[in-house]
């Protein structure tokens, strides 16, 4: 019992200090050139999915926004990450809905458990295609329980449903939880970075990777932007 006040004091101190020195890296991901046209997906073979989309959705290999914004780019700390090996316990989910993967790219920490859900009225088979992690392939009919999995090595893994060949997604297995995926407008933000030297990597499934070095000295926000060269094929 006597320990409690000390503990609380310690915790506040810790929280306070990390607040004081928490740096942030934020920025935008954009592209130059002309990206390949994304085709509308014909889901007529799967009516229960087709009817979930008022207008047909397009392939998501390259998703762009106004002002040359590039979405679905994973931005993460690839060197200097303070949390390598600290596996978060919080569950993350990958949902199959309307014969689409939500989110299209799911970042996760090495060894972090994630859940795969099927919200559709049709069977899917989840078939990730790793090169360094272990390959498996599981059927998930409607109403089946979530599939719980994890990967023990860092890798970008393509995910497929063989039944619905238009379904494509990625798992980004990283050695850090300091990551973000660029959203509408191409924005990303990595908060809570203690002072230190970092390498940032931005990964796009089609356009590859880019890196940038950044140093955080204290309570500051550093701007880092990435520009990818789009290819028309």
């Amino acid at each position: 019992m006597r320990r409690k006040p000390i503990l609380i004091a310690l915790l506040t101190l810790l929280a306070g200090s990390s607040l004081m020195f928490a740096g942030t890296v934020s920025g935008k991901v954009t592209y130059t050139g002309t990206p390949a046209h994304q085709k509308a997906i014909d889901m007529s073979k799967e009516p229960s999915c087709a009817k979930q989309h008022a207008t047909p959705i397009s392939t998501e290999t390259v998703v762009t926004g106004a002002n040359n914004a590039l979405e679905n780019v994973v931005v993460y700390i690839s060197a200097g990450a303070p949390d390598e090996g600290q596996v978060p316990t919080q569950a993350i989910t990958y949902t199959q809905k309307g014969c689409q993967y939500l989110p299209h790219v799911l970042p996760m920490h090495v060894n972090q458990e994630f859940e795969i859900l099927n919200d559709d009225q049709t069977s899917h088979n989840i078939h990730p295609l790793p090169k360094v992690n272990i390959e498996w392939n599981k059927s998930q009919p409607p109403g089946s329980p979530p599939i719980k999995e994890k990967y023990d090595k860092a890798e970008f893994i393509e995910v497929k449903c063989n039944i619905h060949p238009w379904m494509h997604g990625y798992f980004a297995v990283l050695k850090t939880s300091h990551y973000d995926v660029s959203k509408e407008g191409g924005d990303f933000k990595l908060p809570n970075l203690p002072p230190g030297k970092y390498t940032l990597t931005a990964w796009h499934e089609k356009y590859g990777t880019q890196t940038a070095d950044v140093t955080i000295t204290g309570n500051e926000t550093k701007d880092v932007n990435f520009t990818f060269k789009a290819t028309a094929y």
Partner: peptide, 8 residues
């Protein structure tokens, strides 16, 4: 493409 059905 032939998936496992052991869980279902």
């Amino acid at each position: 493409p032939m998936p496992s059905f052991a869980d279902v």
